[in-house]
Design a protein around this nucleic acid. Structure first.
Lengths: 246, 246
DNA sequence: CTTTATTTGTGCGTATGTATC
DNA sequence: AGATACATACGCACAAATAAA
């Protein structure tokens, strides 16, 4: 590994030394010379390569860490972070299609499904009477086996009776809808918040409790504008990046 | 077995006792009988009122807390949470207009402003050459004095030279743009992630370190499609709820 | 500053009804 | 039928944090 891979370091460029270090490593990542998961050179080695003090290297790495490009682990090294999966949010967002486009295999796993009664919020979302029967499904959605989100979905019940069994085998809500003669649907509303993961959520998503979750509250309607589902999705924040589509 | 039950509470309704407690309190909140900021009755008192054990009340309160309706503080009480401010994200989102609509007074406070050089990511966002001059502003945006977000905004520099001085007095980026002959602009892209707040961020946003932040990476362009700003906004997650506009 | 009362948080034990094997 | 597991509910006690005296 020669220093020729990196840009030339200039003392008199006006740019702070730590910034030049950071920019150089960022360029290495952007150009694919170092890939997600790779350990970058130890700080001492970087200091020698750039001809700066280790403190200067650390300042640069801190800048990259703050922007989420690398993550330092004491005693182990500094690693290039996996770029989070871009997850589009738009009028017609389909989990399975989004994943297929990203070259990932999407699969929804049914954790539980039960018949319940709509509480005030769910009733308003689905435009049904409070206490009306709903299908209450809990699913874990994975991309290539890695849990991305934990979703609780409410569906109005006379209409989608038995949908959970189709979902369980197909692993896709879109496909399950087709069995009910519903070929197309769209997003009515999307609301986004974030909070730390509770113990049970962490367990199902295979993360440590307290890790950040992106909470998405979505309502989908059929082409007649009739609500067909109200979903509370909990995404592992450092595995996805939500992209708002226009 | 005795008939000394509370009016809404029914032992043999099939609904779990804790759920009935939760529903009853939720109804009180929905009906405005208790308002955001109010302390609800102590657990012991609620237990007596509903004729159940305190554990049962706690189970119900835990349900409400998980849904963000209340927040318990040890030694102090359980309080009704303020509903987070709905923050629309769309093609033309203006902080000041959004706040005015919500009946809040919006004000951007300039923390720092300096001339810098675009790093790789900023350069790509603004479609300028890496290292090109940019205005690097750090602002805290408040609604009625409460910090909602901390934003780092990069603007291309020959074009917006001196904008920071106008922003400092006006407290609004939209107004500052007008002084540069830019009357209208639109959102090109919005990317959303989330993570805990660092110490310095927490201090400026008046929250505890580690509280969850919603990170929004936005690029705005003028009506010719030319990028005019790249902003990294850090919203206090439990003060706002992002609403994706269609 | 110390003391005291209030309030939430936690633990353990007991009992019961309901599924499930 | 029996055994087992699980969720629900109750009772008591104490710890920890907060607020008021």
């Amino acid at each position: 590994m020669t220093a020729s891979e990196s840009k030339v370091f200039s003392r008199a460029s006006g740019l702070a030394a730590w910034k030049q270090v950071a920019d150089s490593i960022e360029a290495d990542i952007a150009a694919g010379r170092i890939s997600p998961g790779d350990r970058i050179a130890p700080e001492a080695q970087l200091a020698e390569r750039f001809g700066v003090n280790r403190h200067t290297v650390r300042r640069g790495l801190a800048d990259l860490a703050e922007r989420g490009l690398v993550r330092a682990t004491q005693g182990s090294g500094t690693f290039v972070e996996a770029r989070p999966l871009a997850y589009p949010i738009g009028l017609k967002t389909r989990f399975s299609e989004v994943m297929a486009k990203a070259g990932k295999e999407a699969r929804g796993e049914l954790v539980s499904a039960e018949h319940g009664n709509a509480d005030a919020a769910t009733a308003e979302a689905l435009k049904i009477k409070p206490g009306a029967p709903v299908l209450d499904m809990l699913t874990v959605n994975r991309a290539d086996g890695v849990p991305l989100s934990l979703a609780r979905t409410f569906l109005p019940l006379p209409r989608f009776l038995g949908l959970e069994q189709i979902f369980a085998t197909k692993g896709s809500l879109t496909k399950a809808y087709k069995k009910f003669g519903l070929d197309d649907y769209k997003r009515l509303s999307t609301r986004i918040t974030a909070r730390p993961a509770a113990a049970d959520e962490a367990q199902m998503l295979d993360i440590a409790p307290g890790r950040t979750l992106l909470i998405i509250n979505a309502i989908n309607v059929d082409m007649d504008g009739k609500p067909i589902q109200s979903t509370l999705s909990r995404f592992v924040a450092d595995r996805v990046e939500l992209v708002v589509e226009r």
